Amino acid sequence: MFMIFDSSNNTHLKTDGDFVSSTVDFSSLLNEDVALDLSAHLDARISHLDARISPKHKNLQYLITNNSLYRPLKAAHLSTQQSKSSERQATDVLISLFDLLFAEQNVELIRGSGEPEYFPANNDQPARIEFAHGFFASALHEISHWCIAGEARRKLADFGYWYAADGRSAAQQQAFERLEIKPQALECLFSLACQRPFQVSQDNLFADFDTSNSTFPTDVYQQASHYINHPNKLPRDAQLLLWALLTIGFTR
């Protein structure tokens, strides 16, 4: 789910994106030393600052470190023959991990068959984060938007955004890129923590204006770097998930 703000009518728009190539090397952000240092910082923050998690923090740490269930998340290089089944297995594991970490928040991560969508909790039904077509990258992207959304937006369908197709104006595209920097920076860190490649999406395959001067890939890179250097600036739920993914992906 990719979101833009249309300042002409003061409404929010949502778009579904396409990945684009970029000369920015996102893999350089998170080597093993950086990952372990970031994990240690997040571990300390979670155990001391998050009242919901700290009582069971050490149990979570033991579980995700020693349970072989979570190993499929570490799947940077999949062969052609194994990729489809391994991708589904990794997505299943991500769903299980999300449910474990956020069980107290009345929300579920759901493999969708169509386009991504967020449904707030309703009556006795938990909130649902449905990601597109069962894709692992889509799951990470939708989780990123959920992490960014505050309490008020989590009560709204699709966090209060509207759909907008590709082919937007230059002004709409600039708004899209501004609002996508932080979600895609989170998605980048989640992907790298799983030892998977990351590509930005500018969702502008049908743009009829010059996009060559866009700084979006660099902006996402810089925001991700800022999060690494200042983990306290990460959204609270993003801190927990990133800590878990780093613990799984980089445990010696």
Rank of each mutant, 00 (worst) to 15 (best):
D219T: 03
L205V: 07
H226C: 12
T211L: 07
Y227C: 10
L241N: 10
F198P: 11
D208T: 13
P231A: 01
Q223S: 07
N204M: 02
A224S: 05
P217K: 09
P235H: 08
H226S: 10
K233H: 14
H230K: 07
F206T: 12
F198W: 11
T211M: 13
N204I: 06
S225H: 05
F209H: 02
N229Y: 00
D219W: 04
H230F: 06
D208K: 15
H230G: 03
Q223H: 02
F209S: 01
H226V: 02
I228V: 10
A238F: 00
A238G: 12
Y221M: 12
S225P: 00
D203Y: 10
A238M: 02
S225G: 01
P235W: 10
Y227I: 15
N229K: 07
T211G: 02
A224R: 05
Q223C: 06
T218W: 06
D237S: 12
S214K: 09
H226K: 09
Q202L: 08
T215C: 01
N204H: 07
V200A: 10
N229Q: 03
L234P: 15
D237A: 03
Q222L: 11
Q239G: 12
Y227N: 01
I228P: 07
T218M: 01
I228E: 05
Q223F: 00
Y227Q: 11
H230I: 11
F198D: 00
D208L: 02
S212Q: 12
K233T: 09
V220A: 11
S225T: 00
Q202V: 06
H230Y: 12
F198C: 13
P231F: 01
Q222K: 13
Y221D: 09
Q223A: 14
F206C: 01
L234A: 15
T215L: 09
N232I: 14
S225R: 07
F216Q: 15
N229E: 08
A207I: 04
N229F: 02
V200G: 04
T211W: 06
D237Y: 10
R236F: 00
L240H: 11
S212W: 03
D208I: 07
T215E: 01
T218H: 09
S201W: 10
Q223R: 03
T215W: 05
L234I: 15
S201R: 15
P217L: 08
T211D: 12
H226Y: 09
A238W: 01
